[in-house]
Design a binder for these strands. Structure first.
Lengths: 103, 103
DNA sequence: GTTGCACTGAGATAATTTCCTAATTAGGAA
DNA sequence: TTCCTAATTAGGAAATTATCTCAGTGCAAC
């Protein structure tokens, strides 16, 4: 949870997540959307991956990153649960639907 | 949104929010739960307030802080919307229920 | 008024984060 | 092999954050 909120507490990283909604992208493709050096993008992706918010898969010399939307949703619903009755129902429903996916 | 995730990216601040689930508390009462100097607690509360996650009300020499759970839920649901169809419905439902509460 | 408690502001310091450039690793193609 | 591209690692500078102590402000009770 700590890593998740730390990861989300960065505008570039939230923008990366939004870009990935369109489907898997390589580091260069993501970097082309930003005015930032590629190693910085790579670092941000590592932070997101460490938090479980993206997945990486090597494809030859490329690395494809894709969003782990389910994980993101489960974590935030789980966090919201104590604060909000709505979230409790949804968190339970999501958990029952995919029993082995929690963090 | 930036302020919200920055505020949540801190273990002490998330703990403070959880403590406030029991109802409004003074700064000293909150501080008693932590091994941390009071000015630090005060600072954390200021960050949470700046993010709209808590409200403060002066009561004589005391300052009562209480959680703004609705705001927290609305913001996170709003953030989740692009990533998760569930959140879209809920965010809309919440918004329609309280039309003048968004950030 | 004076004393005491609740809280916040100020200043200092250590740790963390973010970003860069340069160098390195690794894969694919000539 | 040699060259090119993709991505990461390394190293370092600048900014931000977190925390402390100490000083101040405001209220309340004596």
């Amino acid at each position: 949870m700590e890593k998740v909120f730390k990861a989300l507490a960065s505008e570039p990283r939230r923008r990366i997540l939004n870009h990935l909604l369109g489907g898997p992208m390589t580091v260069s493709e993501i970097g082309a959307q930003f005015d930032m050096a590629l190693p910085s993008i790579s670092k941000h992706l590592a932070v997101l991956k460490e938090a479980g918010l993206v997945r990486e898969q090597k494809r030859g010399q490329f690395v494809l990153y894709s969003i782990a939307a389910d994980h993101l949703a489960n974590l935030l619903y789980g966090f919201l649960t104590p604060f909000c009755p709505d979230a409790r129902k949804i968190a339970r429903r999501r958990r029952d639907a995919k029993p082995a996916d929690e963090a």
